[in-house]
Simulated scan of single mutants.
Amino acid sequence: MWQGQHRWPTNRTMSKKLELTRRRVLGGLGTIGVASAVAGLGTSAYLSDEESFEDNTITAGTLDMQVTASVEAANDYWAQQTNLGELEATADGEAVTGLQVDDVKPGDWGIICFDIDIGDNPGYVQVRTENLESSENGYTEPEPTSGNETNMTGDFNDPGVSDGAGELQDKILATVWNDFGGGDRTALSGLDGTTNVDGGSQAEAWDPSRDEGGVVDSDTHYTTLQEAYDTYSTGVTIRDGAGDPLAIEDDGENFDPEFCLLLEIPAEVGNEIQGDSLSFDLVFEAEQTRNNDSPFST
């Protein structure tokens, strides 16, 4: 027999306790659920590794050519008119004037040498002529030597002829030489075949026996300025002794190739050049030698 009083919980009281208990249980489960989610994020990474190459750089090379033109020698009259040592100009990016000569007469001559500096990267070099302009200008008689002055016909160009061209380009002899030892024309050697009309063997040195038209013998015929201009107008690549394009580079021995241009007016030329003048451009172009089996598309 029970002693005292003991009350069983009513349904209302039981319900309230059960409700409180569910909240606690659900809250606890919620806490466990969040903890599980966090733990899951922390354990989902794969094994990994990472290596890197930083600051990779590619720089294109340069090909920088300079060409210096200098008047190395001239006949006494030209040499007395100016200081030949001052007649030097270097082209490096911008065009420069290489030669200006006034009052030329039969018997005058000059040698202009071109020194080519290609820099560190080897390259092939092509020489090209452009913009030949010939002017008759005013002249004093008796310039014409043939033809009909009244009808303006013949092998000369009077001022009245439409093109107004002079004859100077057909009377000046222009030849390219591989070497100049200093002094006068006899120190020139290695006539370049591009300025030998007859082709054949190349003269070892300048020959004073040539005639007004530049003929020396059956193997050597010096070109006129017009003929040389026409040959170089499409571009001529500088070549070595074997005829292959010459790879020009600074090989540590200050190797700078040079070629020389001889301009001369034979003493036999007469009055037909009086008052005439001309101008032309020489253009030097360089291309890399590496991976270049056909420089200038030759």
Rank of each mutant, 00 (worst) to 15 (best):
D108C: 08
G119T: 04
G200N: 14
G241Q: 14
S52F: 13
T224I: 11
N56S: 08
G147M: 05
R7M: 14
L263P: 02
A205K: 08
D64H: 08
I118F: 02
D49Y: 14
I116M: 12
D55C: 00
F53N: 04
T31G: 04
D108R: 06
A39R: 01
V197W: 06
A205M: 03
L84H: 06
V127L: 13
V125F: 07
T194I: 12
G154P: 02
G193C: 01
S218A: 13
R185E: 01
D115G: 00
R12F: 08
G213C: 00
G33Y: 00
T150V: 11
R7W: 07
F296C: 00
D293K: 05
I58A: 07
E54A: 11
G30S: 09
P257K: 05
N56F: 08
N56Q: 09
P257C: 09
R12A: 14
V127K: 02
A39D: 01
R22S: 15
D117G: 11
I118H: 02
E285K: 12
L168H: 03
N56R: 08
D76K: 13
V38K: 03
F259W: 11
I238G: 00
L132P: 01
L87V: 14
L87K: 13
L99V: 09
I112H: 01
E253L: 11
T153W: 05
T231H: 10
N131W: 07
R290D: 14
G214M: 08
T237Q: 10
G214Y: 07
Q5D: 15
I265N: 00
V215Y: 07
S70V: 11
W206D: 03
Q80E: 14
P144R: 03
N121P: 00
E88F: 05
C260V: 10
T237C: 05
T231L: 11
V197C: 01
D49I: 00
P106H: 01
G61L: 13
G190R: 03
Q126M: 15
